[in-house]
Amino acid sequence: MAWDSEPVIITIAPVGAEVTRDNHPSVPYTPAEIAAASLDAVAAGASVVHLHAREPDGKPSGDPKLFAEAIALIRAKANPIIMVSTGGAVWMTIEQRTLSLEANPDMCSLETGSMNFGDDLFLTSRPDSISSAKLAYQKSIVPEIELFDVGHAVAASRMLGEGHLKGPLNVNLVLGVPGGIDAVPEAIPHLLRPLPGDVRWAVTAVGRHQRRMLAVAMLLGAYGVRVGFEDNVYLRKGQLAKSNAELVEDIAALARQLGRQVATPQQARSILQVK
């Protein structure tokens, strides 16, 4: 496939488990706030919404009711692919992390290994990965495999070979998380090396690495890129983004400057084979 033959899919991650209003005053917490930020981002060019849930005080939550409320508000006004996180927060059990699957999303993130996550330990055993994938498929939810290091790619390939994952895989190469692979162009082929050639790959890069590494990814033919306050709250060095939507507008403009079209939600569903 030529590097520019498919439109690039933009994912918006409006809030994660770590970023707070100390980092940016507009970080959304409630389902209504998360939905509003997501809808603005979809209007700006995002076709996938990657969701975490928060309690009203900002504490990360696995409560499926909070996920379901945000999803219902989004679906009432737009039709992006909705992906829920099963990464949750580092302190959550795998049972808490997979409660989000009860909210009837289109897709879910899925980890295939443990790692040091900054100063914390993020545990995902192989049996946990297998059971999470099984649960997702039972609910007709399409997984996206989150690859923070090469070992995670090797584990995903093994799970595919054993039938625990279904191909072609959707994977997200996560670059620049302290404890994971670094945010350099060479990281991309290293993460893709253990995987089959038909993999559909996207790139996430955190903090100051975001715009540079997403540009590299788009020039290398990435199927998708991800932006949003989960990964980065700055538009440029020292300049906070006004909103999640502004980050989407910026990366969409950059994609077009580089010769890539931006996928609509309908095109994204076709590319990722999400009903």
Rank of each mutant, 00 (worst) to 15 (best):
I12P: 00
A13L: 01
A13V: 06
P14M: 07
G16F: 00
E18L: 03
E18Y: 08
V19Q: 08
R21Y: 03
R21F: 09
R21T: 14
D22A: 15
D22N: 11
N23E: 08
H24Q: 06
H24R: 02
P28A: 07
P28M: 10
Y29Q: 04
T30N: 07
T30P: 00
P31N: 11
P31Q: 10
A32K: 09
A32M: 05
A32Q: 14
I34G: 06
A35S: 10
A35K: 05
A36Y: 02
S38L: 10
S38C: 13
S38A: 15
D40Y: 00
D40I: 01
A41M: 06
V42E: 03
V42M: 05
A43I: 08
A43N: 13
A44S: 11
G45Y: 05
G45W: 10
V48D: 04
V48E: 02
V48Q: 02
V48H: 03
V49A: 09
H50L: 07
E55A: 13
P56W: 08
P56N: 03
D57A: 05
G58S: 10
K59M: 11
K59Y: 05
K59R: 11
P60R: 06
P60E: 03
S61Q: 02
G62H: 02
G62C: 13
G62W: 01
D63E: 06
F67S: 02
F67I: 09
A68T: 11
E69T: 14
E69S: 15
A70V: 03
A70P: 00
A70C: 08
I71W: 05
I71N: 04
L73S: 07
A76Y: 07
N79A: 15
N79E: 14
N79W: 01
P80F: 02
I81K: 01
I82Q: 05
V84F: 07
V84L: 07
T86R: 00
G87W: 03
V90D: 06
V90H: 01
M92V: 07
T93L: 12
I94D: 04
E95D: 15
Q96F: 05
Q96N: 09
R97C: 11
T98E: 04
T98L: 00
L99C: 06
S100E: 04
L101P: 03
L101G: 12
E102S: 13
E102Q: 14
E102P: 00
P105V: 14
M107V: 08
M107C: 13
C108I: 02
L110G: 04
E111V: 12
T112Q: 12
T112C: 15
G113Y: 05
S114G: 12
S114H: 06
M115K: 13
M115P: 05
D120E: 14
D120G: 04
F122I: 08
L123T: 04
T124W: 07
P127F: 12
P127E: 13
P127G: 09
S129Y: 04
S129T: 15
I130E: 14
S131K: 14
S131T: 13
